[in-house]
């Protein structure tokens, strides 16, 4: 806990997890400052998604702790609890509620009570409507608000999902490959969107696309075989011989 200070938002300390003997995450330690945006890169099987699974409570680590906001160990909580504390997650494959309208998708994501009976009698307030409108503007889906989410294009679904994350008003945003399957223009727009939200939120972006990472222009962490291989600016890590080794093969 020595590293953890007041402005540390997320601190992974010596986390390990193994699946049937295969060490997916191996003594991984990582610190995210409050308001920081971090890009996490690494080849396939480096443990990026598993790391997110651990932070969001989907996978329990065999060892180690994940300290959130200085005092909460996330490994003791479940997904819903972690989400309510303010950790939002975007999946690799865009996952939105296809049969709901775009607006309802955002409505369900808004921060607020999650109690069964509260929801049974909940009515949409003016404040909620205002927040939804604001988010719709941000993700550029204002004109499609009452369409079913299934009708959106791939890129629009990615944005909608980011919008849903923001609706939660999370402290930490975990974004898994937001640019996957996007056109170049969409990729750049997405990078722009993420830059907008960073600052008030702490953001961790997992990405393969180096152009996208470059467009983000933030500190980069390289994962390899479940632990941190290198950390620093993109130029710094991409000149690191170990990183080159891992990416280009030995």
């Amino acid at each position: 806990m020595t590293v953890s200070t007041a402005d540390t938002m997320l601190y992974l300390n010596g986390v390990s997890v193994a699946f049937d003997g295969f060490k997916a995450i191996n003594e991984l330690s990582l610190v995210l400052e409050e308001g920081e945006m971090r890009a996490v890169v690494g080849p396939n099987g480096a443990g990026k998604t598993t790391m997110m699974d651990i932070i969001t409570g989907k996978t329990r680590p065999d060892k180690g702790e994940v300290i959130f906001a200085g005092n909460v160990d996330l490994t003791k909580h479940d997904e819903a609890g972690i989400a309510r504390m303010g950790v939002g997650r975007k999946f690799q494959k865009p996952t939105v509620f296809e049969t709901h309208t775009v607006e309802d998708n955002l409505l369900l994501s808004l921060k607020g009570s999650r109690g069964v009976f509260d929801l049974l009698f909940a009515r949409r307030t003016k404040a909620e409507q205002a927040r939804i409108d604001e988010l719709l503007d941000l993700i550029r889906l204002g004109d499609r608000r009452s369409e079913k989410a299934a009708a959106l294009s791939h890129g629009q679904k990615q944005w909608l999902e980011i919008g849903m994350l923001l609706a939660q008003d999370p402290k930490v945003l975990l974004v898994d490959e937001p640019a996957a399957g996007m056109t170049d223009a969409e990729t750049m727009q997405t990078a722009e969107l993420l830059r907008q939200v960073a600052g008030e939120h702490t953001v961790m972006v997992v990405e393969h696309d180096m152009d996208f990472v470059r467009a983000l222009g933030v500190k980069v962490t390289v994962l390899h075989e479940g632990s941190v291989l290198a950390e620093g600016s993109l130029d710094h890590v991409s000149s690191n011989p170990k990183v080159i080794d891992v990416y280009l093969g030995r």
Partner: peptide, 20 residues
């Protein structure tokens, strides 16, 4: 709104979970 959550669970259970 509860009904909307139910449908969300039907369509994307883990998304619903990660929304808290």
């Amino acid at each position: 709104r509860l009904g909307k959550v139910l449908v969300s669970i039907r369509d994307a259970e883990s998304r619903t979970r990660f929304l808290g």
